[in-house]
Design a protein around this nucleic acid. Structure first.
Lengths: 196, 196
DNA sequence: TCCTCCAACTGAACGTAGTTCAATTTAACG
DNA sequence: CGTTAAATTGAACTACGTTCAGTTGGAGGA
């Protein structure tokens, strides 16, 4: 019966991720507590540390889920988009914004997780980021066929970063915020202008 | 002699801000400790709380300094800039980036300070933000004379947010980072394209 | 100059975190 | 079913921000 332990561990692992995912969604990353997790999961406090190195490790697992959902949301909206490259970029930008708005706490957790000095993001993080980039890269390469590969990559990154910045400052700051209609419009304006 | 106390309080206040400013610059916001501050300032732990409501209050004072320095840095580079509006925008964008790169920890502290749920940023924060926006608003209004006032404001905000996003993801993520040359180029490309 | 009183200052103590580890429980195997 | 090693537990440890009862020291009057 080599496995009873592994099965239980695996179940607890999934359970902990599910519960942390819920709590982050409801209360935000800053309100996640190891003791709450243990209570909700019906396990000992120390059990968390049998499975994860530390809370950061657990949060990374939640962030992986969030990243997958984000990718899926963007892909779903993209599927219904017109086939003009520029419209696809607009749809993607707005899909990114809508996901961030509707999953604020989850989305923030992607970027709020403090990575200690000089530590690089985990590999899957870069991969998921790359997937998002590749969505942009396609339409952009059609719009800008004269750009070299390196410049195209820079441009792709710049476009993503720009939309990210608009969403971040638009949603996040209590700086009087920007109404949803306006944010959608800002994103569309930016992308149309940048892709022209 | 109505004043000996006030003088000491004021001196300690300035001293604490100076020390917190240094520590944030050297070790980052996340490594700021009340006990370290007290030790460095040669005061009691509780003394900090006679002067500031809490550490957040002190950090806000440091951030106010940082914001002033940021504004001054942008203004200084702007003073040497060509008079073409588009070049001024490029210079400002790159000045923002250079400030962020050279004062990474200070710059991050501006945005990393956790504001508890629904709390709005302090007034001076919005004012300084407004000052940065007004730098952009001028040249942009020359470049886009046909835009309405509201759209111009949206565009101004979008432009700032875009540069902010590029700097944030370019500097911050350990995502293989973007070389300085490339970031300068990305910012210039974006601004030229967006202002066209 | 000295005394008195009250505001200001002090730092030990408190509450709340994440994390650890000695003691206990439990699963795997002969 | 007994033995043993690994897994699990939760009280304890450490490290924070913050508080507050006790003490100190300054300002005004005698």
């Amino acid at each position: 019966m080599a496995g009873k332990v592994e099965i239980r561990r695996k179940a607890l692992r999934e359970n902990l991720i599910k519960i942390a995912d819920q709590r982050i969604g409801e209360d935000g990353l800053a309100n996640l507590r190891a003791r709450d997790l243990a209570k909700d999961a019906g396990c000992a406090l120390g059990a968390i540390y049998n499975i994860f190195d530390d809370l950061t490790d657990l949060i990374l697992a939640v962030n992986a889920l969030t990243f997958k959902r984000l990718g899926a949301a963007v892909a779903a909206d993209l599927a219904d988009a017109p086939e003009q490259p520029i419209e696809q970029l607009v749809v993607m930008g707005q899909a990114y914004y809508h996901f961030a708005a509707e999953n604020h706490n989850h989305w923030r957790a992607l970027f709020d997780l403090p990575r200690s000095e000089g530590e690089t993001a985990p590999e899957w993080y870069l991969e998921e980021m790359g997937r998002l980039f590749s969505y942009i890269h396609g339409p952009l390469s059609v719009l800008r066929p004269n750009l070299g590969e390196k410049d195209l990559h820079l441009f792709t990154r710049a476009l993503f970063s720009s939309v990210h910045g608009i969403v971040l400052l638009g949603i996040d700051q209590a700086s009087a915020g920007v109404p949803e209609k306006d944010l959608d419009r800002m994103i569309a304006l930016l992308i149309r202008q940048i892709s022209k």
